[in-house]
Design a protein around this nucleic acid. Structure first.
Lengths: 352, 352
DNA sequence: GCGCGTTCAGAAAGCGCTTTCTGAGGTACC
DNA sequence: GGTACCTCAGAAAGCGCTTTCTGAACGCGC
């Protein structure tokens, strides 16, 4: 019996559209749009009617239609290696906070450390007409990758897309927030030298990552300036994870001439290293000192608390997001440098 | 001189559109669309021409236009309390992995534990016509909140939106992945009783959270069945964070009659509690045992490693995402229960 | 050889908005 | 009182796609 009735208030479709609101308020589409967006002045009584109708129908604008008509969207894309890595999680927190303050929605993509997936996501975000794309996480020193990435990013930027990166990306002409990895790693080296260490090992991630090469380079260079050299077989490469750190430390213990101090290029790796050393009966710091990098929140709660280089992770996320939200003044890309601070905690002591 | 030339290959606008591809391939818009989507058979030569044109112009479809025209999108919304909390980070990892496998884009929102922000985000995700909305993180036992949330979610579901939650949401009629908080907390209580403990304290988060009330309830109930009662002043409420755990434990030490065993309702709080106990010279586990809940990755690396209830966090993320990707068979909401497993580590021992 | 059914390309109608253009009505000024 | 100007509501033209509808071309059976 009621088959032919349909929805009365709306034009018989699933969603409440602006058209429905306009109809109910007895105004034109244009007026309804203007009221809801505050685009221009509308007579008070019409205004009221529109607002009332929108509320009554609980109207939700169709963001796709808005994006299509106005060719601008309220979403930004963020690409990171792995959300569950505390480093990214902390940065993401800052990103999200700033995004929320500006009413932006964040599309977050994890590449699970697959460079090709990173490029794929840029394409998807382009398709979504994301207002901006943020590349969180290290760049790759790899010609092919740089070329493919550039091929996606260039047209995106030419059509008004904003791009910003956290960490150094060699050849991308984009805005960037740059932690001073090289300099800070050097400062850490000097602090450890001051403690009296002369015999070091370094646990690194894949060297193709700019972050790794900067930290490793800065560290060994500063040591070199003090006349200290790291034995080649004391530089151990593993994956950029807790388990990578564990394996690298285990491998280190298998080699000759134990160092007095180990530097893991990230805190996450240091956590694994600490576990490995404990499991193999090497006391930290009495038998071996250990230092990390990043100052992710958990490291102060380890036993012993970890010496590290503190980076203001959450603030870095806020800044990189802030970068794409602010209009660029000049044409050239903006660079914001972020200093790291060496924090000596109990995981490092004067060697015996 | 070249001012009047413009772009030749494209119709003189910023983006390459399907129209441009069709023109270059000398076919109609419809044909180009059909080729690119594989919607229906197209003669081989036309097909080739379209593909070639698309590649040459490096065409990227406008996802908004697609969404508008086909009224379906490739994005899902995920709402959590805080990405930087290891619990959510782990779950998010699973969510992202499954999303990636299905070519879905994830819009992630952090509420920073503000219930009203949660509702705001649902509205935004509705506007974005997200294919599904995932509520990760505890529900609130709060009538007003439930009503507002229902008011957003109901119309969304009626218009074809999928909703799934992780954790119990009392009155929402939605698909759910439910960690067995109550039962597992009970199992933990029994395990601690077996160790010989009779004198407990519980550090909880806000009791309006279903997760908190389930874990606290399950724990005390199981103790009650063994004739053990937790003193009212040994149940200490604090915020659901590391620092909340720290404060709660500090407060506990200020009160009378120290318990032999402390249960923090999340690992994150337990980490703070552990730090507090250490700072106040209370040795764990010799002077006081400590247990957590969740088994976030880091707790095995603490000193001592934390006794906890292991939840398959990443798998839970995968399952909740899987829920919304699979067509519902029946009309009623689907429930997937997830068991927790008690893992006794070194942070708990037989009391002296 | 003619009618019929198929197959597949193209025309065109939206999807739900924003925004320009148009014009009605009012105000100010001479 | 008439002209010029301004304000603001409505009509309508897209935004870039998908999909239905239309119709041409072809193959087949009788």
């Amino acid at each position: 019996m009621s088959e032919a009735v349909g929805e009365e208030r709306t034009g018989d479709h699933a969603y409440v559209t602006l058209q429905d609101v306009a109809r109910q308020a007895e105004v034109s589409l244009a007026t309804a749009s203007r009221v809801l967006n505050g685009t221009s002045q509308v007579r008070a009584d019409l205004r009221e009617r529109v607002l009332a109708a929108a509320a009554e129908l609980s109207y939700t604008p169709n963001a796709h239609a808005q994006a299509l008509a106005s060719s601008s969207s309220k979403s930004v894309g963020v690409i990171c290696h792995d959300v569950s890595d505390p480093y990214f999680a902390a940065v993401a927190r800052g990103v999200m906070r700033t995004a929320a303050e500006h009413g932006m929605l964040v599309m977050l993509a994890s590449t699970f450390r697959d460079p090709s997936r990173e490029i794929e996501y840029v394409a998807m975000l382009r398709a979504q007409r994301a207002r901006a794309i943020l590349l969180i996480g290290s760049g790759f020193e790899d010609r092919d990758w740089e070329r493919s990435m550039g091929a996606e990013l260039d047209p995106y930027q030419r059509t008004g897309g904003r791009v910003a990166v956290l960490s150094r990306h060699r050849s991308l002409k984009v805005d960037a927030v740059l932690p001073q990895n090289r300099e800070s790693a050097g400062a850490l080296a000097r602090a450890l030298l001051d403690l009296g260490h002369r015999d070091f090992a370094v646990l690194t991630g894949p060297r193709a990552l700019t972050t790794v090469s900067d930290r490793l380079g800065g560290f060994t260079e500063a040591l070199g300036e003090a006349g200290v050299r790291v034995r080649e077989d004391h530089i151990i490469e593993a994956s950029f994870t807790r388990d990578g750190g564990y394996r690298a430390a285990t491998e280190l213990l298998r080699r000759e001439n134990r160092p007095t101090c180990v530097f893991a290029v990230t805190d996450v790796m240091a956590i694994g290293a600490l576990a490995a050393l404990r499991d193999h009966g090497v006391a930290v710091p009495s038998e071996m000192s250990l230092a990390g990098f990043d100052d992710i929140p958990i490291v102060r709660d380890l036993t012993p608390p970890l010496t590290t280089v503190a980076l203001p992770l959450e603030a870095m996320g806020e800044r990189v997001m802030g970068l794409v939200l602010r209009e660029p003044v000049a044409r050239r890309s903006r660079i914001e440098r972020v200093d790291g601070h060496v924090i000596l905690r109990d995981s490092t002591v004067r060697p015996r």
